[in-house]
Nucleic acid binder design. Structure first.
Lengths: 233, 233
DNA sequence: GCAACATTTCGGTGGGCGCCGAACTGTCCC
DNA sequence: GGGACAGTTCGGCGCCCACCGAAATGTTGC
């Protein structure tokens, strides 16, 4: 009874088109100001402010004020997971324009899911890591000695990550591929590394990623992933 | 843009307390009539009928009419997953009565999640199966020869399940334990076996399960799970 | 055919909520 | 200090939607 109320109150937050648009925008894992969110949702600043307040109250986002700006970001990986899962429901959407189709295709090819890699790129990297015995699935996801070396070579500060409260390794079911990709703090670190090395680039202010030629070569060399497996449909 | 609309439309369906109560009730995986759902949600039959129609339109439930009855059930495991995930959000709920606390404790100990085992029981069974090398995690969840024998001995028709379109093995993150339990058609078959052997019993018309003394002995013998690990907190 | 029952459809009502414009607070920069 | 700007608060408007009661549709069993 009272349980239904809490479920409904959370679902209700995402049940409004403006708030849904905001949360989708925030899926890139970044911090957005209220004004920018207002624009993303096509509403006025006043409405956006109220929406953000409700999302904060519901625990879906957190805010941080810096001077006259207020930065909004998703409250954590679990929220991102929820938004991703929900956005995969409903009719696959009629896709009314060619531009919309292209955008969706790009999204399926490579994107961020909160703060880690997703789409075909994310799944390919995950599968390659497992296939090359850098990750193991014995009783939960684990890192092999070989995997430790690989990540260390890449410049990932493993001890630093392990000191965090957040889980190092987690699987996240990919929205479009329906098979797991790598999440957790290590997934986040890997994604960051891809971005700083210019292996992938964000397309504008979205969570769509573009794999650079440099990146194609890198994943081919390091993981044996053929560029054709990543090509935009 | 248009993507936000589809997300919102789905979330909106679960954003109403009555519909949320209905979906929570349906989490037991069974088929409920419209009248019974009306009672579960504390609304009139007219309102319940409209809610069911909307849930059908949104693809969250399916219906089957038999004579003057209309049976409603969740549209599939993914919907159950979504409802479970959502119900784990929000404030852990103030739990206003002792009865509510007891119910929640029982729910955490053992319950069904759509059509398979969840809660501490579900996780314990999953972990025992992995620990005893009946399930393996090498490149996706798999069944070892030893596991095949074990399930066959239990009376599960493995070839029959494998002929289905539905995945045999899947992991489902447990709502209360935050660690995976066994889902998929094999998870469903296992749950059914537990019920027909009277190892677990449904508590009334809920998804809460009660482990019988017979069941405690069975999981101890077959899987080495100590009864203390299943005791109601 | 008739009575009992499950479900649906149809007005009608009330409340909640999303939106805006305008006024207000607080911050930054010149 | 003054102007520009980000964000919030406050009325107020309008719409959507959840609900109910009553009537209609279908089904079952006599």
């Amino acid at each position: 009874m009272t349980d239904a109320r809490t479920l409904a109150s959370v679902a209700c937050l995402l049940g409004d088109e403006s708030r849904a648009a905001m949360c989708l925008a925030l899926l890139d894992g970044g911090a957005w100001t209220v004004s920018v969110l207002a624009e993303a949702a096509s509403v006025g600043r006043a409405a956006a402010s109220e929406h953000v307040a409700r999302l904060v109250a519901g625990g879906l986002v957190t805010t941080e004020t810096q001077g006259r700006h207020k930065f909004v970001r998703l409250a954590g990986p679990r929220v991102a997971e929820l938004v991703e899962l929900l956005s995969g429901f409903g009719t696959p959407a009629p896709a009314r324009s060619l531009a919309a189709v292209r955008e969706r295709t790009r999204l399926a090819a490579a994107r961020t899911c909160y703060d880690h890699l997703a789409g075909r790129l994310g799944v390919a990297v995950h599968d390659a890591l497992v296939g090359r015995r850098m990750l193991t699935h014995r009783g939960g996801l684990g890192l092999t000695p070989r995997g430790r070396d690989w990540f260390a070579d890449l410049g990932v500060d493993l001890p630093g990550l392990e000191a965090q409260r957040r889980a190092l390794l987690r699987e996240c079911v990919d929205l479009t591929e329906r098979t797991p990709h790598l999440a957790g703090s290590l997934g986040a670190a890997l994604c960051e590394e891809f971005l700083t090395r210019d292996w992938v680039r964000r397309r504008g202010r979205t969570r769509t990623l573009e794999v650079t030629p440099l990146g194609e070569r890198a994943v081919a060399d390091l993981l044996g992933v053929a560029p054709a497996d990543l090509a935009v449909g």
